[in-house]
Measured scan of single mutants.
Amino acid sequence: LVRYRTISKIPQITLNFVDLKGDPFLASPTSDREIIAPKIKERTHNVTEKVTQVLSLGADVLPEYKLQAPRIHRWTILHYSPFKAVWDWLILLLVIYTAVFTPYSAAFLLKETEEGPPATECGYACQPLAVVDLIVDIMFIVDILINFRTTYVNANEEVVSHPGRIAVHYFKGWFLIDMVAAIPFDLLIFGSGSEELIGLLKTARLLRLVRVARKLDRYSEYGAAVLFLLMCTFALIAHWLACIWYAIGNMEQPHMDSRIGWLHNLGDQIGKPYNSSGLGGPSIKDKYVTALYFTFSSLTSVGFGNVSPNTNSEKIFSICVMLIGSLMYASIFGNVSAIIQRLYSGTARYHTQMLRVREFIRFHQIPNPLRQRLEEYFQHAWSYTNGIDMNAVLKGFPECLQADICLHLNRSLLQHCKPFRGATKGCLRALAMKFKTTHAPPGDTLVHAGDLLTALYFISRGSIEILRGDVVVAILGKNDIFGEPLNLYARPGKSNGDVRALTYCDLHKIHR
């Protein structure tokens, strides 16, 4: 019993810090008490220290592992850092350059016999395009090294910054494609005289377009951006097909006994025919423009016929181009109408809503002055909100995010209106959640004399007048207030005048 009563005193000691020596009952000389009392004092002292730490809000209350900052290894790049964003855009520009100039170089340097010394005699450094290609190869190699040090988000939505895990993730992902696209074939085969082989191998750079397509997928929600990307894709495919079309004609031209190829026909049409040795002929500019003209006309199913396939190889390629053109029509131009419709969806919704308003007016036989006010209010409210119901949009977000959005939407009023000066951010967040926005066209009466005042109004834009009878008592403008002081009276009061809008007004109100 003594032991039980001794232990039962522990909660009292913990909360009230009572010393055991003052209790005459606990001072009985028993061996059990002498053993338990020192333990009680020690526990009391420890609990006292913990309570003191909690009340003082000291940093040592938290466990040590929670006080440590997340460790980022040296030379690790955050995937959302500004440097990584700028670097990704730079790589994107280099990939676009590669997609345009690599097929052009591979096709127009394929057994090209233009006048001038061969590239091997001039030297590697004197070729501007080769120098640019070398810079692109170096940048792609540097990009691989950067990807080995860039964080990523795993399946659990955690940012991984450990170098080993980053390397394994990159090896399992895009490393092989990036490595093949970054191989400097110019340096590996330079001086061997195989410019045709170098041009063909350099087309491996186009593998990076797969990554670019995935990154550009984030802009699919913007109709104008999608339309622009589709047109660029169409032009890029036409450019690639033009390079292939020229390569076919250029390879067949020296081996044909009869002059029936499209390059021969082009030379005869523009007065620059090929001679018996295969030299001469149109310039590279004429060849490229004509090839691009043929691919565009074939892809769009126009086909004027002034550039036509004559050999079997050219006919087979033309059939493939027609098939590609039909697929592009289905996948690209078939979506253009939907994209344009999405661009004008706001206008369509406006006309639909206006039609419903006019049908309501016609069905209920609203008189002319009231009908005009109804239409003007709808037009003004639509121009202010673009038909978007803010309350319906915010309803799907958590309250903390709703408060931040409301604070942002009402920031101008909260910053410049005098009653809100000096208020804490928590108070402003709470008030912003209570605001209701209303609009009024010129001549609209917001409050009639004798109406119950259940709200306090803040003028965000425009001006109003307060009338008693036919006498203008006051004219209020931006950041002015009218209405009933909230919670100042037990019952809502009545208006002693009319409140009429002089201009288009936007008002925020808080109800009782």
Rank of each mutant, 00 (worst) to 15 (best):
F360L: 04
G267K: 01
H239R: 01
L299F: 01
A403K: 10
I198K: 06
Y344V: 04
I177Q: 01
M322T: 07
V393F: 02
I248R: 01
R358C: 03
L292Y: 01
C427V: 10
G164Y: 11
F363D: 01
G422T: 09
T290E: 01
D404F: 01
R205I: 01
K434Y: 04
A338Q: 06
L90A: 09
P128A: 11
H239A: 01
T203V: 11
S194I: 10
F185R: 04
Q341E: 06
C427Y: 01
T98E: 03
Y80A: 08
L176I: 14
L176Q: 03
Q402Y: 03
R205E: 09
K202P: 01
I189H: 13
C122P: 01
Y288E: 01
G305I: 01
Y384K: 15
L200Q: 03
A181I: 01
L188N: 10
E359P: 03
P273C: 01
S258L: 09
F296I: 13
T424V: 03
M251T: 04
V357G: 01
E359W: 01
Y222M: 04
T300I: 01
T424Y: 03
D88E: 05
V100P: 01
I324H: 01
L176F: 14
A291E: 01
Y344S: 11
N154H: 14
V159M: 01
L431P: 02
K202M: 01
Q68G: 13
I77V: 07
S331T: 11
P184V: 01
L209M: 10
A403Q: 10
G199T: 11
V131T: 01
E376A: 10
G191D: 04
T233A: 14
M179Q: 01
G396D: 15
Q415M: 07
K395M: 08
L374V: 14
Y293S: 01
C417Y: 12
A181C: 03
G267R: 01
I260H: 15
T76V: 07
A338M: 05
A423R: 01
Y350M: 04
S297P: 01
L401W: 01
L355Q: 13
N335Y: 13
N391Q: 14
R342Q: 14
A430V: 07
P309C: 01
L241R: 01
N312L: 01
P254E: 15
V132A: 05
F363Y: 08
C406W: 03
I198C: 10
G199V: 09
L90I: 07
L67Y: 04
G281F: 01
P273M: 01
Y97H: 01
A235C: 14
L236W: 01
I388S: 03
H73F: 07
F294P: 01
S258C: 03
A107W: 01
P273G: 01
R165E: 13
C400I: 03
P273H: 01
A403D: 01
A423G: 06
T445Y: 12
P309A: 03
E112M: 06
